[in-house]
Nucleic acid binder design. Structure first.
Lengths: 200, 200, 200, 200
DNA sequence: CATGAATGAGTATTCATTCAT
DNA sequence: GATGAATGAATACTCATTCAT
């Protein structure tokens, strides 16, 4: 898997320029609106902020859910790409893992819809979740090979941790921004090989 | 603070018996329904399962939110009472803290509305949150005094952790029940005084 | 089968008076509106003319289709009852059959929705269609026993004829009202035993 | 009136060839789609099956109704031409009339839009209806002159009969294909001079 | 006081038609 | 001329809350 596979906005050939611009406007507006208001917002609000009519919106995304999914996937994808880029550039396996979490979570601050989707299904859609899972798995293996990871820790554990922490990120987004970093540090310390007790 | 302050149903004087019975029935039904379906359920479903009419329901709780809050408060109150009872009965401060989390989270397994409320406001309502916060504070102090708690850990940290973990409880309720215990163990290990690095 | 089974408006016990009044108002308005505009009308129009809110309408009829079906059934039921009453009171079997058709079709003049439903499914709903079918069957047997009916004519034939003629009733409702009676007469004459050639 | 007047596609001079080809493609697709799905189909479906864009479709037919009318006219025109050809080739006036109906109705089997249009306006559009009416009139006169037609039967009667029977054709298209022929036979027998009673 | 019927603004989605490319 | 993207009013249905019985 390479970075380029996901970072590009995927310009479809033979597509009219303004259509592509509208599609982008819709996604951009939806990203903001979903993040601010959660998945329950009125579709009209998104259309309004996109500057397009309802029909246009529904031409590009045949369902509100599809739009939501697209936004979530793209959002998470961007974050994953950023986080992964930094992780591979980091020599120390443990720092790579730590940095990955920090970056991924830092991006989610205040994004209601993403966290909601974690709540509902355990992930915003299989394609993207799988990628996230795969990345975490890579990082876990590096740490395990280096002997810095607590024995018995699974990728599932790390993945679940990311979900739980994104909840914390959201909860504290307004009242105590940044407090989640303390929780992250605590959890990661619990994951270090210095804690050798078997997990339940 | 004593247990009795909160555990009793607070019988209001001059209240007809059947009114009290209705109120109890509403809360009982709402507890089940909110837990199963989340805060988004139709109020009618609650009225139906309570066996009372809509008017009665709205006489006791002028708003859906008020009913939700009441249910959450009572729910959490019960759990806190249980958890606290066990905590005070436990000599070892660390075990007391551990047991408290375990019991509190174990109760939340599958309760959609409670976790949702953590998501939305950072807590299910001030009165109850304060009590929870106070209990956690007591447990933290005991651990800190005994020197078993990582230095610098605040009550806010522990409280936020409880919220994050309830998210994990819910996420895995159906697919991987019990996996949250591993996360709890990891986090708590990160809280032990064996990890002495300062938190961010 | 007796007349009373269907003619009564079926007052449900324990039902609030105004609810029943509303239900009646809705059906009445819907009957008019569906007849005038066909099944495609906006539900709001029916609510408006009923003098009730949308919610009330949907409380009584959970679906537009259900309302439409109810109206059609009741409409047809009333007509059937009228037509049947006259038929049984008529000694001569052939006149009974003739009168039945005449009365049934005469009622349908200008009712768009009823004819539409015949178009779509071959009948406005099984319960009522079955009754209609059964009545026609009775009349057919009487005629056949009396030897006045063309041999080989089935109830299906008569039933289909009624549908085809209701189409004619509607078509000519405004431009040539009453012309359908000529068609009815022609068809019925073709059904008399004076025409003995076998049907295809 | 000759056949050639109507059967030809009326090539408009100064028209580019591909425009004419598009127009033909649209009509062809629309014919199929309207027949299958009725007049309520989405115009897009027709554009899709035509292989042309919406703009092209609306350039040729400024309105959906206009397209529908065109299709119906051409459709009926073709059928009429066929039916007429056979009618003039038939010596016996009664057989000519009978064959005309049979052929016309046989073509309509399963064509939703045509029957719908009969329902709505009493005919698919004046030009074509007039031709149909004229043909029926010719056949009626032949029969009347030969003394095989029931006295008093008008062209209006026959025309209305054709509409009523097309309803029957559609109704039974799927469940009892061919049953309409029995009804046709019955009605035509009612039209024979053997039935001499005056019509209402 | 209990009941549950009534309310009506709000929501996602469709489709005939127009217009920029 | 052709294309198909954009438009936006229209439509069926929901649900928190009120109020007549």
């Amino acid at each position: 898997m390479t970075l380029a596979d996901h970072a590009a906005p995927a310009p479809r050939p033979g597509r009219r320029a303004d259509a592509e611009r509208n599609r982008a406007a819709i996604i951009e507006a939806a990203t903001v609106v979903f993040a601010e208001c959660g998945g329950g917002v009125d579709v009209r609000e998104i259309a309004r902020r996109s500057g397009v009519g309802m029909g246009t919106l529904y031409r590009h995304f045949p369902t509100k859910d599809e739009l939501l999914a697209t936004v979530l996937e793209q959002q998470l994808d961007t974050w994953l790409t950023d986080a992964y880029r930094q992780a591979v550039a980091t020599e120390d396996p443990w720092r790579a893992l730590t940095g990955f979490f920090e970056q991924l979570l830092g991006n989610q601050a205040g994004n209601r819809a993403v966290v909601e989707s974690y709540t509902a299904t355990g992930g915003p859609g299989s394609a993207c979740v799988q990628r996230c899972y795969a990345l975490i798995d890579q990082l876990r293996v590096r740490c395990a090979d280096a002997g810095v990871l607590r024995p018995g820790v699974t990728t599932d554990d790390l993945f679940l941790l990311s979900g739980a922490l994104s909840q914390a990120v959201l909860t504290t987004a307004e009242s105590h921004p940044g407090q989640w970093r303390r929780l992250l540090r605590i959890s990661l310390d619990g994951l270090s090989s210095r804690n050798a007790e078997p997990l339940p």
